[in-house]
């Protein structure tokens, strides 16, 4: 054990330098892109309403903050992203586990699940607006729908591939059906569930954005269509950046949770 504990300390140093190198290269690339964005369009005589420069965007950001209620729009979008993600993944997981326990219903429902999974969920947005009006309901529903499937499919797949010998062992130890689910099946599916949630988190932002683009007067998606209507490219750029930030934050939180939950998996060696 002593040897095992000492070895990582030795390899750590080169690993840390490597990590610093990637960080420096990453940031350098960002700086390069920002510089090009700032100076290339004016140099090539591209008008500001087509490609605004970085400073134009920052100035517009300040104006939006002061005059358009940017904070409110951003918070609203963030709220519905998280809400839609939470409801959608909860439903997806619950139904995934239920179907995973019943082979009969899984077989009965699988063609419909596949059909719904293939159908472009964002195309439902206008329908939801016709049904529920110009309020928060349509965008929430689109988000829930879009988040639902990757979680459902991942959980179902994992439930199908739970080690039969583990289940038999649990049976031999007299565990009840519920006990087997709780102590063997559910923990076995955790890696897949977490992968499904990660995919779902990136889709949640798309769902909310589409819902806001199609109808309503709040959120970053609304600012995109509003800015587009006014030929205000800087506003559109800013909204896209903020949407990306929201998605990125949600994803990062999930990765952190995943590291905690799946701590028992050996770390992949690069």
């Amino acid at each position: 054990m002593e040897a095992g504990a000492a070895a990582p300390a030795k390899v750590n140093k080169p690993a840390m330098t490597a990590q610093r190198n990637t960080l420096v290269a990453s940031l350098g690339l960002l700086a390069l892109v920002l510089l090009a964005w700032q100076f290339l369009p004016p140099a090539l005589d591209v008008p500001k309403f087509i490609i605004p420069t970085v400073t134009d965007c920052l100035a517009e950001m300040k104006r939006m903050w002061a005059q358009e209620g940017l904070l409110g729009h951003t918070l609203s979008t963030a709220l519905y992203t998280v809400l839609g993600f939470a409801i959608g993944s909860l439903l997806g997981a619950v139904i995934g586990y239920l179907l995973g326990m019943s082979e009969f219903w899984e077989k009965v429902l699988s063609p419909y699940i596949l059909a719904l999974q293939i159908a472009p969920k964002v195309a439902f947005a206008p329908l939801f607006i016709m049904w529920f009006g110009y309020n928060a309901m349509p965008k929430l529903l689109v988000t829930v729908l879009i988040v639902f499937f990757p979680v459902l499919v991942n959980v179902l797949q994992a439930m199908r591939t739970v080690d039969r010998d583990l289940v038999n062992l649990a049976r031999a130890y007299n565990l009840s059906r519920w006990g087997i689910f709780l102590k063997v099946e559910m923990p076995s599916t955790m890696p897949n569930l977490m992968a499904g949630l990660r995919i779902a988190s990136t889709l949640a932002v798309i769902g909310v954005t589409v819902g806001e683009l199609v109808g309503g007067n709040t959120g970053l998606g609304f600012l995109i269509s509003y800015g587009g209507g006014q030929a205000n490219a800087a506003m559109v750029f800013n909204a896209i950046v903020l949407l990306t930030v929201i998605g990125f934050l949600l994803y990062t939180v999930l990765v952190r949770i995943e590291e905690r939950v799946l701590h028992y998996l050996p770390k992949a060696q690069h």
């Binding site: 010998d165 062992l169 007299n174 102590k183 063997v184």
Partner: peptide, 16 residues
């Protein structure tokens, strides 16, 4: 399944 018997396979079947 009964309490008299304990079994063990080629796979250790430890819960990871």
């Amino acid at each position: 399944p009964n309490a008299h018997v304990g079994f063990m396979l080629q796979k250790d079947l430890l819960l990871p």
